[in-house]
C-alpha cells in the first residue's frame, strides 16, 4: 500500500486517517532544539469537509489516499444517481447525492466536470466554472429597461434559480458562473 513520509507532507497531499480520505491544508514542522520533532497538520475530510488538526512524529509514515481528480462527461440522472463517463475510455461511474452536492443544480448533459474519485468511487463533483442554461421561468421582461440595476429571479432548465436582469425573458440562454451562482451574460444564438 502506498504511503507518504512526513517529509513529503505539503498542502494538497491526500492521506488516509481513521479510514477516511483527507487532504492536507497546512503542514507545520515543530521541533524543540533538543526534543522530539513533529509535523502538525491541518487536514480536511474529503467526505465531510470537516477540518481537523493532527500531529505526527516526524519521519513516521501515513497511508496515501487513492484520490484522483478526473475530467468526466455528465450523462444523465436516474433519480438516484448522476452518471458520468470518461470520454477517452467510455468507462462510467455513478455519483450519489452526497458526492454530487451543489453541483446537481448546474449539470446539463455532456458538460465536462471535475470528478474526484476515491478508490474509483466519486467523492465530489465540481461543475464547469461557466455553464450555459436556458431560462424556463421568469416574470415578463420590462421592454426597453436594459440599464437599471434591478433584477429578478429566473428558473433555469436544471432547476437552479438565479438573479437575472429585468430584461431577460423565458427561452433565452444565459451564461452563469457556478462558483458564485451569478448571471454573467446572455448567450447569442
Amino acid at each position: 500500500m502506498a504511503s507518504y513520509s512526513t517529509n513529503e507532507f505539503k498542502s494538497g497531499l491526500k492521506i488516509m486517517l481513521d479510514g477516511d480520505p483527507y487532504t492536507i491544508v497546512e503542514n507545520e514542522f515543530v521541533k524543540p532544539g533538543k526534543g522530539q520533532a513533529f509535523n502538525r497538520v491541518r487536514v480536511r475530510n474529503l467526505k465531510t469537509g470537516k477540518v481537523i488538526d493532527r500531529t505526527f512524529k516526524s519521519g513516521d509514515s501515513v497511508e496515501a489516499a487513492d484520490v484522483l481528480d478526473t475530467e468526466l462527461q455528465y450523462l444523465y440522472n436516474d433519480g438516484e444517481f448522476w452518471h458520468f463517463m470518461d470520454p477517452q475510455t467510455f468507462e462510467q461511474v455513478a455519483a450519489g447525492k452526497a458526492a454530487i452536492g451543489d453541483a446537481a443544480k448546474w449539470l446539463k448533459e455532456q458538460d465536462v466536470c471535475t470528478v474526484t474519485l476515491w478508490n474509483g468511487e466519486p467523492l465530489s463533483v465540481e461543475p464547469p466554472n461557466f455553464v450555459e442554461l436556458k431560462v424556463v421561468e421568469t416574470d415578463p421582461g420590462l421592454r426597453g429597461d436594459t440599464s437599471s440595476g434591478g433584477n429578478k429571479p429566473a428558473t433555469l432548465e436544471t432547476g437552479a434559480v438565479v438573479r437575472v436582469p429585468l430584461f431577460i425573458e423565458i427561452g433565452e440562454v444565459l451564461k452563469i458562473d457556478t462558483r458564485s451562482g451569478d448571471y454573467v451574460s446572455r448567450v447569442k444564438d
Binding site: 515543530v30 521541533k31 524543540p32 526534543g35 522530539q36 513533529f38 512524529k57
Partner: peptide, 9 residues
C-alpha cells in the same frame, strides 16, 4: 516525547 508534544504545541 509526550512532554515535548504538550510543551511545543
Amino acid at each position: 516525547g509526550l512532554l515535548d508534544l504538550i510543551l511545543s504545541h
